[in-house]
Design a protein around this nucleic acid. Structure first.
Lengths: 125, 125
DNA sequence: ACAATATGGGAAAAATTTATCCCTATGCAA
DNA sequence: TTGCATAGGGATAAATTTTTCCCATATTGT
């Protein structure tokens, strides 16, 4: 496991949220688990662009941060189910606010994002 | 400038928000600009842990995404002021929701974050 | 026997982001 | 003249995150 060389800031609320939500797929993992997709393989199918490996890593981190909990059924083949903890559930409205803002402004966001990507190509001199 | 090799997902609202907010200091930059810290040097003093370089880069990206606007006063030494656009201002309640959640759960967050960092040290075998 | 599914982790490479260092320019103060 | 503040960008190193590849276990279906 990678060990940080620069220790994080834990001053204000924004620092703290960042620390648990920063990770390319974490917000979507929380979202899908909240929607009822509980098993790792289901989540991997819902988020096909993420590698299996990172999803495992980020699920572990979310569990370590007590936002989700994990139940391992002693079966073979193994069965695992994640679910939100109360703590994690309290984060859902905040994530919903983010997603709603994105949905409400989807057209404009797509436009400005693509505009900036286009500029990078032109600048390649 | 760095040119992406993997193109981003722009499917749902959460993808789109992530695209404009993902960046270690962007949320704080928006927050402080909203609080009235407008000049680059002020922002650098408010966020001393960030290098001057990244703040410039992320300010440029926020400007490209039309969340902030920039006014250059033709003086010497130069004077620059950023401010939120209407678009950027509409994001403030969402950021506030994030920060409030973090503030409300600050103690618990600090605890779980530090707990997980501690485990990394033990595992170094 | 062989392939497929499910879960998970190690090791190394690749991608991406952030930090460090240096250079430019102007004006003001000691 | 030297030093400091303002603003900003290039080049490169370092840090961090994510991907890719491989291995292991146990069961079911072919």
């Amino acid at each position: 496991m990678y060990e940080r060389k620069i220790s994080p800031n834990l001053n204000c609320g924004l620092d703290l949220v960042a620390e648990v939500l920063y990770g390319k797929w974490k917000i979507r993992l929380l979202w899908f688990i909240n929607e009822g997709y509980k098993r790792p393989s289901e989540l991997q199918r819902k988020i096909p662009d993420a590698s299996r490996r990172v999803l495992n890593i980020q699920l572990n981190e979310l569990e370590g941060h007590e936002l989700i909990s994990k139940v391992i059924y002693p079966q073979a083949p193994p069965k695992v189910e994640y679910s939100l903890t109360g703590f994690g559930r309290s984060l859902i409205p905040v994530i919903a606010a983010l997603g709603n803002w994105g949905d409400e402004n989807a057209d404009r966001l797509r436009a400005v994002i693509l505009k900036q990507i286009g500029q990078n190509h032109d600048q390649s001199k």
